[in-house]
Design a protein around this nucleic acid. Sequence first.
DNA 1: GAGCACTGC
Length: 745
Amino acid sequence: MAKISALQGISKRKSPGHHTPRKRSHKRDHAWVDVSDDDLEVKSTKKPSSKSSIKFDLSSRKKPRLSTTSGPSGFFSNDSLQQQRKQLPIYAGKDAVVDLVRENDVTVLIGETGSGKTTQVPQYLLEAELAGSGMIAITQPRKVAATSLASRVAFEQSTSVGSLVGYSVRFDEASSSSTRIKYVTDGMLVRELLGDPLLSRYNIIIIDEAHERTLRTDLLIANLKTILQARNGSASVNRTGDKGKGKHKMPGNYNPLKVVIMSATLEAEKFSKFFGGVKVAYIKGRQHPVIIYQTTSSQPDYVDAALRTFFQIHTDQPPGDVLIFLPGQEDIESLEKSIKMYANQVPKDSLSILICPMYAALPPSMQTRIFLAAPVGTRKCILATNIAETSITIPGVKYVIDTGKCKEKRYIAKQNGTGFDTLLTRDITQSSAVQRAGRAGREGKGFCFRLYTEDTFNALPLTAEPEICRCTLASSLLQLRCLSQNLEEVDFMDKPDEESIYFAIKTLVLLGALDTHKTLTPLGRKMAAFPLEPPLARALLAASDLGCTAEVLTIVSVLSTSAKLFVDSHDVRDAAVEARRKFRHLSGDHLTVLNVVRAYEDVSRSEGKAGRKDWCRKMFLNERCLAEAMSIRTQLRDVCERHQVDWKVGLREHEGSDGDQGLILRAIAQGLVQNAAFLQPDGSYKQAMGHTMIKIHPSSSLVDKKVPAIVYDELVYTTHVYARGVSAVPKNFITETQILRQRTG
DNA sequence: GAGCACTGC
């Protein structure tokens, strides 16, 4: 690759700390650069770096081996549509796949990207009448995949979604009595398991993207093993028609079940072994070639390396958009500034550069930009997190720059039964690297520039650690106890740590969902009915005893959304803080949330949809979060009704007395018993049920406040152990609850 | 006095 002389000397940056969050100041890092618009030369007060261009090892070119995404897209007339189906790589193996499934209870199917397995296999099995009169379920880790695949397959079957082919995801379902193929999220099928432990509606269950090893997929796989024994194992298996609903049947009277595990190759053997050495079928994929370059030396400062690589591509390579994978928002903002700073120094005849940042917290209006084609004479440069690895596909990408880093949330369980989340930058896995490279070959031949050496790549772990080994397990444990199973005894592909299990048990005992003999209580069964984390479910049920269900329902709905309520970006910080002040409640973040939603509802009523949107923007609130919270609240109200919880009971309108609002906090505190801390004489806080010293997160309305006791939504370890989502509560709320639980629990 | 990938019910 040719050097870019104008960029000499820009590589000086601090080496990033690998497992400690680093601070990066744009001002300091670039203080020595003085660039005016007409400058082509960077003026530097430092010596130019000896390696201004990154050397890539051209001998290490190779094709990505595998990757997985959803199937084909595009629309065709019916004739050519059927023709196109026959041209998919999997079509050649159709009979073999059908025979394998017919002859075996469990089949492992390995299909590379573009093989068509996800859309075709369910249709083959239906056409071969292997499902009898039952349904075929195909699980997906993500909602958007489940719904879009259902549309595609319905189209191929010349029907509309919801008839022969349907889907079922949270908040959205399209199916009917005639539905035979159903795409579902893995979490949805776990929910179904609670009401139908043998999943008797389905005669074929296909677990797709099994290699992702989500917690819910692992739960399903473990349960499928026992379901197979129950439905296929006994001699009294009834293989004739299924006339009634499964739950009315006696054990041993179920239709046999077929299971298909679909995965990327890396774990084929493991899946096969888990089910007792079942047969594995391989299907080749079809994708455009991607040439992969790896660096000859390691690049400790990956943001700077990405900057220089981008300009190497930009000045040397033909048109085509560039996708750069970075770990987080902070790096994206930093790289965006750097690229802008140097963009006007490239030769005048170059393409102009359109920078598109892409991460989950980005406002939706900014996110849509990346899907628009770059204007003529422009090269799009997309700076993305992992969101672009599997969740979204960006058209026009020809070049991928892979920093080899991502952020990972990991739960650290402590021996004393406490713990907290960490969110740290770490190396990606080999399969993730392959997936990222594959993003360059969606539309034609592509190129991937890895900012790490071949040796580094070879030393990367093959696959990510399964989620079950790094997440809190309280929710799964509760679900398993509803199925009369024990977390310790379930035959998982990978067993979770003892400490995580102990912590989950301790959580559920403290919440009163289990008694001290680890037996499920009636309260626990009720909690499991709600699509909420156990502490939030407990807070909600506590509220129904205290007469403030309506308020806590609202708070809990917001807390269980995925998006952040408050928009927070560098440029608008002061204005955002000012706007937020209007909602601020003295007791802290939980009642502040309630104030926000009440204001949002008032605006919705008085000014409608458009006014509401405008208002959210002015108040620096994330409307997506509020809209999602409203959906969740509706769903929770339905669950309340089914379980005789009166969700309308609330405090008197505009009462505002501290005594009444204290009830809300009391309910919240009952859910967050485990997340409490007391003020120490030196002004810091210490966990009520552990030894960790914690600080209130600066984003909290209670930051710098000294109150005797707090409860918080979560602890996150970044530069300190921070409590986020904090409310001040009377100390006795916590001690009383603890004593009560010890006595009854 | 800080900064947060992604997904699911």
